[in-house]
Design a binder for these strands. Structure first.
Length: 498
DNA sequence: ATGTCC
């Protein structure tokens, strides 16, 4: 049976389908054109079905960028009013995107030597690579353990921002500047962190803290962009409300909670897997990565606290990176100023109102998409127009800034989080041609900090970003406001000075 | 994603 035969089309449009799960009462909403639906492999669809049939799950959305993940597909939304699921949050708690808008015109970065100097200045402040923290770079911002603790407990509080040289006003430009504990207090987080440290559950705390202000590896990156606002009256109006300007230089970052979030997440997986084994509880689809905890239990409280600690770390990490990138720009091009456009996650569970009642909305490789007028945006700068949606594509097709439309209700107010892999990392390394990749970057005049661009991160290892975006717009979820075109990329790879 | 395997 072809993959396409699995889906049932909906009358609402060619990019919205239903994946039956065997029982008619628990269907999965699939967002994707026919070309995109053909990219979902068997295991990805099975993970979606397992997740949909898991206890307490009331809705599941599969996004066009979906591919196999840990327990649940990367690129899905899972809703539950009664249970919390660590898998559908992911190992990199609150992996996110942020965008900095500078006052520079595009021609300020046309010169290759200027761009090379910017790459060097940024790499002197924000390291890349697994394990690499601020202490490994020349112009590090020292973060002591006491400040690290406050970042974990308070997130981007005024005091934490001021201590790190982050403009406190940037906190208003965060999807969530601070995450609270299971009982909606910071005290719960402070107590939980103490217990984790006393119990030795976070190893090398000082090193983990030193990773504030660093990118990490894999698909994480920093990218200098030129903003191209779409040619429509609405795009111009929304861009204005977002604070992005056509023809100006911006900087897009993708990273998460680094080793800290990883330790918190894997610790939770181990704990919950141990309890499922001890109590002999069957796992949905027999997938041991799809563990869960019923809300109100000590297990759920503990997970929610650890998730909040990891999320706060990721938030402060992003804001610090943006402050350091701005500092690097100002060093190379004196007079450069910048402001945070937005910071938004794609690996987090949030408590939202779904169908009139509170539920945990788990977005795993999925981005929140509240349109203008959504009650949750009240008293934010984006109450009327909707918040910016930051979608990394690839350096050559560009990345996209979108705004949600009322039709986003059909996907639990969510869109994709990028292009989505179409090729495994090993497959990409085996099949793609290094020289051809590097020539294509050269032809597009995109510089990188790497001597050769990592093959497993080449645009060809990912789905066609324009087709992914066409799925989103055709389904009526969101509209493109601007495209970001890369001028240089900072990534983990073989460094020019190695 | 991740001191890339407790």
């Amino acid at each position: 049976m072809s993959t396409e035969a699995k889906f049932e089309m909906l009358p609402s449009g060619e990019a919205t389908a239903i994946l039956p799960t065997g029982g008619r009462t628990k269907p999965i909403t699939v967002i994707g054109t026919e070309a995109i639906r053909g990219t979902f492999d068997e295991l990805c669809l099975q993970q979606a079905i397992n997740s949909r049939l898991a206890p307490g799950v009331t809705e599941l959305v599969l996004n066009p960028d979906a591919h196999c993940g840990f327990g649940a597909p990367v690129g899905c939304v899972l809703v539950s009013p009664t249970h919390i699921y660590p898998g559908p949050v992911g190992v990199d708690i609150k992996c996110s995107m942020s965008l900095l808008q500078t006052n520079l015109q595009a021609d300020a970065v046309s010169d290759r030597r200027t761009r090379r100097a910017l790459i060097d200045a940024i790499c002197e402040r924000t390291p890349t690579g697994a394990g690499r923290g601020q202490r490994h770079v020349k112009k590090a911002r020292h973060v002591d353990e006491a400040l690290g603790r406050r970042a974990l407990v308070e997130g981007a509080s005024r005091e934490v921002c001021e201590a790190l040289g982050i403009p406190p006003a940037w906190a208003e430009r965060c999807e969530d500047a601070a995450h609270l504990g299971h009982d909606d207090t910071t005290a719960a987080l402070a107590e939980r962190l103490d217990r984790l440290l006393i119990g030795g559950r976070i190893r090398n705390f000082d090193n983990a803290v030193s990773q504030l202000g660093s990118y990490g590896g894999g698909n994480h990156f920093g990218e200098c962009e030129v903003v191209h606002v779409e040619k429509s009256e609405r795009a111009a109006r929304v861009a204005d409300a977002f604070g992005i300007e056509d023809g100006r230089v911006a900087f897009l970052s993708h990273c998460g909670s680094r080793g800290m979030g990883h330790q918190l997440a894997t610790g939770q997986f181990r704990t919950l897997q141990g309890k499922f084994a001890l109590w002999d509880i069957p796992l949905p689809g027999a997938d041991r990565e799809l563990v869960y905890a019923p809300l109100g239990t000590p297990e759920a409280d503990e997970y929610l606290d650890d998730m909040a600690l990891g999320a706060n770390f990721a938030t402060v990490n992003h804001l610090l990176i943006n402050a350091l990138v701005l500092e690097a720009f100002a060093e190379v091009i004196p007079g450069t100023t910048g402001r945070l456009v937005y910071f938004i996650s794609h690996n987090i569970a949030r408590r939202e109102i779904v169908d009139g009642r509170p539920a945990w909305v788990h977005r795993k490789g999925a981005t929140r998409a509240f349109p203008g007028g959504h009650p949750a945006l009240r008293n934010t700068p984006f109450a009327d127009v909707g918040h910016p949606i930051l979608l990394p594509g690839n350096p050559q097709a560009g990345s996209s800034i979108m705004v949600a439309d009322p039709g986003a209700d059909k996907s639990c107010y969510s869109v994709n989080h990028g292009a989505g892999r179409t090729m495994g990392r090993k497959q990409a390394i085996r099949t793609l041609d290094q020289a051809q990749i590097d020539r294509s970057f050269d032809a597009a005049d995109i510089l990188t900090n790497c001597r050769t661009y990592p093959k497993d991160e080449a645009p060809a290892a990912y789905k066609d970003f324009n087709e992914v975006l066409r799925s989103v717009t055709t389904a009526g979820l969101a509209t493109e406001v601007a495209r970001l075109k890369a001028r240089f990329v900072i990534k983990d790879g073989d460094k020019a000075d190695d």
